[in-house]
């Protein structure tokens, strides 16, 4: 992957194309889980942003983390209609999602605000630590912890079973 990133940085269209192939499944999943129906658009914007800003990436080894950051930003932007909302300012969910009876992760995600979805995606889909999630989203670790707390047990059980 690092060689491909270097080649794409040099403007090689084949390397860029191959990079799209490699990134698409992962970026598509990240974006869709956060932006739901607007996931397609968020993925497209992410990939454009990644390829456009690739020359500014100094260390190809940091590629994945860098792409993840862009994907989360674009997905949140698509989901919230361009309004930049910090996670800390998000209101608590009015109706707590019923994780026990949730049949579909998508259903469950729909009931959450985009920024909370981002927390769940980063923690469980991407397997980041709470500290890393907080850092990526630019929120206090405590906010991430409390946001995850309610969802954790039932959600995790639900996924593990599958």
């Amino acid at each position: 992957m690092e060689n491909q990133v270097r080649a794409a940085q040099g403007g090689d269209p084949f390397a860029m194309d191959a990079l799209l192939t490699e990134l698409a499944p992962w970026v598509g999943r990240l974006c869709s889980s956060i932006a739901l129906d607007k996931g397609d658009d968020a993925m497209q914007e992410t990939l454009i942003s990644v390829l456009k800003n690739l020359p500014t990436l100094r260390e190809p080894a940091a590629f994945r983390g860098w792409v993840r950051r862009i994907a989360v930003r674009e997905a949140l932007r698509a989901a919230t209609g361009d309004r930049a909302i910090a996670v800390a300012e998000m209101p608590e969910v009015a109706v707590a999602p019923d994780f026990e009876t949730a049949v579909d992760i998508r259903d469950t995600l729909t009931k959450l605000p985009p920024s909370r979805r981002a927390v769940l995606v980063l923690r469980y889909l991407e397997d980041l630590s709470e500290h890393e999630v907080a850092e990526l989203l630019g929120t206090p670790e405590g906010t991430v912890k409390s946001g995850l707390h309610r969802a954790r047990e039932s959600f995790r059980e639900h996924w593990r079973e599958a």
């Binding site: 192939t21 598509g28 497209q44 456009k52």
Partner: peptide
């Protein structure tokens, strides 16, 4: 992750839109 996280697919047309924006 059954029953599954949502995913988006990079259709050939979207792929071209990306390439058109960056090449």
């Amino acid at each position: 992750f059954a029953p599954g996280w949502p995913t988006a697919e990079l259709t050939p047309e979207r792929r071209l839109a990306v390439l058109a924006a960056v090449l």
